[in-house]
Design a protein around this nucleic acid. Structure first.
Length: 286
DNA sequence: TCCTAGCCTTTACC
DNA sequence: AGGTAAAGGCTAG
């Protein structure tokens, strides 16, 4: 497929929004829903196997008007620097169920550790598929994790998160909750529904909203975003609040809401894009 | 209603 | 080898 829009596959898959992609040679292998496929990019040429073009466009956000998004969020020199450095990075449209479980697991974990947990969960509870002679695992169904034992999940290295994953899966299974439905709700309503799941606070809810539910204004605030705000955006916030933020390292819900609201009002409707560029930029300094 | 402190498991990296 | 930081959330007070 010939690309007629700006896109960078490596940036989009390496910026910490997805956890189950694997690069073999110059091909990226991934599992999306029930499909295993591979994809590679050479300049404007996007080559893939095992999947429809329509799904590729949808999954990698190729329908987003990235030029316009960049113009919208180019509010200062620092974000412009990040935008230039990672030109072509797009927000991927993940499967909501997998995204939800992924970010419940992500609390207090490094990205490498998250990848390992999800790999173990998939091998243990997911269906195996062979593609190109390699083994892949479909992400476990809701039923599988709803019926899994807390201990079975602990064996995947989840620690205290096992209970949350199990309870969230069980709630979705028992109440037959349709996560896709959340795409049709406004951002704040979506977030409100998400935090009702065990193990889901504002941060996880924002990640799931942004990465799988089309809420481009969601602005997840984690330790990195807090650092970014304190380093580059103190002039946009009241002095008292900045002092309070600096005085301790975790975030209270109230503080979270203030930083989140700042991000959304400052960057606008595509604050989530801004967050992802800033996050990746900050994490890959030095 | 809102805030704070203490606790929760495991992994990676220094 | 030992310590610390890691895309946080829950509960009690």
């Amino acid at each position: 497929m010939q690309l007629d829009v700006k896109f960078d596959l490596d940036f989009s898959l390496c910026c910490g929004q997805v956890f189950r992609w694997k690069k073999v040679g110059d091909w990226w292998y991934g599992v999306v829903g029930e499909n295993v496929f591979k994809i590679r990019q050479c300049g404007c040429e996007l080559e893939f196997d095992g999947i429809d073009e329509k799904v590729v466009k949808q999954y990698f956000g190729l329908n987003d008007d990235l030029e316009q998004i960049q113009r919208c969020i180019s509010k200062d020199d620092y974000i412009k620097q990040a935008l230039r450095r990672f030109e072509g990075l797009r927000i991927v449209r993940q499967v909501p169920w997998e995204c939800l479980i992924s970010f419940i697991c992500a609390t207090y974990k490094s990205i490498a550790a998250i990848e390992l947990m999800l790999k173990k969960i998939s091998i243990k509870f997911g269906e195996k598929k062979v593609f190109d002679g390699l083994d892949f695992y479909i992400f476990p169904t809701v039923e599988k994790l709803a019926l899994a034992s807390e201990n079975g999940l602990r064996e995947c290295g989840l620690g205290y998160r096992a209970k949350y994953v199990q309870a969230t899966a069980k709630k979705i299974w028992d109440k037959k909750i349709d996560l896709e439905f959340l795409k049709s709700l406004p951002y704040l309503d979506t977030r409100k529904k998400l935090v009702e799941f065990p193990g889901v606070g504002l941060k996880v809810a924002d990640c799931v909203s942004l990465f799988s539910l089309e809420k481009m204004e969601a602005f997840p605030v984690d330790v990195w975003v807090k650092r970014i705000v304190l380093k580059h955006y103190t002039d946009q916030l009241p002095e008292e609040f900045v002092k309070k933020l600096s005085s301790h390292d975790s975030l209270t819900n109230g503080e979270y809401e203030k930083v989140n609201a700042f991000g959304r009002s400052y960057f606008g409707a595509y604050a989530g894009y801004a967050q992802e560029y800033l996050f990746h930029h900050e994490r890959t300094q030095r």
